[in-house]
């Protein structure tokens, strides 16, 4: 019963929103040109995905960009996050800089990046890696600082060396936080990528939405947005699936 509710209720939520959307669209209060019906959007999405060199290519491109950004960004942030957080000196030294870079919206770097790297793929990947790195490094950082001191003391009392405390207590205790870091990086990367594509790109869903909008093809705009949302959601669900297996030891508050 519980399981049924958990799998079913999200669909009910989606269904409700779609129903509301449909009603609003057919009621005509906002005008058919401005708000297409779900069916029209579905149709536009299907056409976009099935035409050669259409939406599917754009989405694939974005997924690939986000994946590269997140994988490289997190591959850098995991070891560096530990390094920075573990030593009080490096922590005190770099904490403000990391916070600064994290607070800076990655998209604001694009003019500079364009100067140095041009407007090609390199530039986009650089911004994405940057975004993923700083988003995840901060989460990781805080995760390490939040490891309950009682486990560290228990480890020491059992005879663990500094390195053993790090490897056998801090690292495993931070694994849940690593997944949070990856998920945050995913979210930030999607946001950054689409924003970048809206401004300047040759391909990608952001670009295709922009183009559709300039031709007033609202159903294509909606289809693009929904497709981006689902791609991001699917990637997030993928990470969560791995997370649930990897940190099954975690006690969760079940309500």
């Amino acid at each position: 019963m519980q399981a049924l509710r958990r799998t079913l209720l999200p669909f009910v939520g989606f269904a409700l929103v779609i129903a509301l959307w449909w009603l609003t669209a057919v009621s005509g209060v906002v005008g058919e040109r401005n708000l297409p019906t779900p069916a029209a959007v579905l149709d536009a999405g299907w056409t976009g995905l099935t035409t050669p060199d259409g939406l599917l290519v754009d989405i694939r491109l974005s997924v690939l960009r986000v994946l590269i950004g997140v994988v490289v960004g997190c591959a850098l942030s995991l070891p560096l996050g530990f390094l920075l957080a573990w030593f009080p000196t490096t922590r005190a030294m770099f904490d403000p800089i990391v916070s600064f870079c994290r607070a800076l919206p990655p998209i604001s770097l694009s003019p500079l990046v364009i100067i140095y790297l041009g407007i090609g793929e390199d530039a986009r990947l650089f911004v994405l890696i940057w975004a993923a790195f700083f988003a995840s490094v901060v989460v990781l950082y805080e995760g390490i600082a939040a490891v309950d001191d009682i486990y560290v003391r228990a480890g020491r009392a059992l005879g663990a060396s500094e390195f053993e405390i790090f490897r056998r207590v801090i690292v495993p205790a931070t694994v849940p936080q690593m997944f949070v870091a990856v998920r945050v990086a995913l979210g930030v990367s999607w946001a950054t990528l689409v924003a970048a594509e809206l401004i300047a790109a040759q391909r990608g869903p952001g670009w295709s939405i922009q183009r559709a909008a300039s031709f007033f093809r609202t159903e294509d705009v909606y289809a693009g947005i929904i497709l981006i949302g689902f791609s991001a959601l699917l990637m997030d669900m993928g990470v969560r699936l791995v997370q649930r297996r990897a940190v099954s030891w975690q006690e969760r508050v079940v309500r």
Binding site: I150, Y151, R153, A154, G155, L158, G159, A160, S161, E164, R168, V169, P172, A173, V175, V247, W249, Q250, E251
Partner: peptide, 25 residues
């Protein structure tokens, strides 16, 4: 310790074995 301090990520037997797998011991 006064608080629960067994490692939540290790099974019962691995918790008990923890000290014996360290370099010093």
């Amino acid at each position: 310790f006064q608080q629960y301090a067994i490692f939540p990520w290790l099974t019962v037997e691995k918790n008990i074995a923890f000290g014996l797998t360290l370099k010093s011991n």
